[in-house]
Design a protein around this nucleic acid. Structure first.
Lengths: 154, 154
DNA sequence: CTAAAACCTCACATTGACGTCAAGGGCAAG
DNA sequence: CTTGCCCTTGACGTCAATGTGAGGTTTTAG
């Protein structure tokens, strides 16, 4: 398969595929004239790479992880990397959840005409007091979610 | 409070605070000599701004949302924005979950000496076949999670 | 054979939230 | 008055995953 075909099937641009190659994430064969030739499996691989990119992993990290996919084995270093990236993702999800809760509170407040009827204003505090100032851990307020059902179109 | 004090309490750099002002997110008073003066409430506001930035909202979007925080009211447009950003965040969380599952499968595979004992290899497929090629919806495989307890240090 | 489509390699542009350095001003303590 | 620290504006640097365009070659369709 040539680059355009792969790009189409994997849903990325040809530019992205050449970039992946430049980063060592993908190593297609070349025809005598110099055109790239990919195996079928490249589609799947590109999807995995994209998934990692979407999750915020930098190309250098992905490069270190891909051998584990290929060999099915992880060196101690790779193992550590796997674990730390998993942790990063979990932390990022918590951050997202916190921001979403903030949006939910705003939605609640905007939805209720008077403060007395607004669930968000009954929360412990808008910004829960954080005694540990140095830690960058995001607070996890539990927000009321009664507006989401009518607002969110997922 | 002056800029350094706010920066310290909110856990951001002074550069960031000046950037927020440049983007219209923060409008401190000025002393006659030109130095910025913030109210106490700025700390909380900066924390909220940071939360939104961490969640991937661009400054222009935050700029549109902050008035809702101040007035407690949301125009129809602002409402739409609140909802769409909430959806974006939810989608981002799903993407993160998918990537984390991929990492979990890799961890599983690396953890088990022989393929026969590996839960991840019993999954329907590494990359579940996606007939709808145009949709950018991430797959949601349910990964085995027996390695997380020993690996993740949260 | 020919024209269009797809491919090739540079290489510069973009975006966003800052970092960082430069050159200078304000302000309390000694 | 001077030392030292914090503040000011301005402007260029960074990083990362692409977008984009130039200028040329290869493959494909008619």
């Amino acid at each position: 398969m040539r680059i355009g075909e792969i790009a189409h099937h994997a849903g990325v641009s040809t530019r992205a595929l050449r970039y992946y190659e430049e980063q060592g994430l993908l190593t297609p064969e070349r025809t005598p004239s110099g055109q790239r030739t990919y195996p079928e499996s490249a589609v799947e691989r590109v999807r995995l790479i994209q998934q990692f990119f979407t999750a915020g992993l930098p190309s250098r990290t992905i490069l270190q992880l891909l051998p584990c996919v290929d060999t099915g084995h992880a060196s101690p270093k790779a193992f550590e990397l796997l674990a730390s990236e998993r942790n990063r993702i979990t932390a990022a999800m918590a951050d997202l959840a916190a921001a979403r809760d903030a949006l939910d509170r705003m939605i609640d407040i905007a939805n209720h005409p008077t403060p007395e009827h607004c669930p968000a204003l009954r929360e412990p505090a808008w910004a829960p007091y954080n005694p540990a100032d140095a830690t960058r851990t995001a607070p996890h307020p539990t927000a009321a979610r009664d507006a989401s059902a009518t607002l969110i179109t997922m």
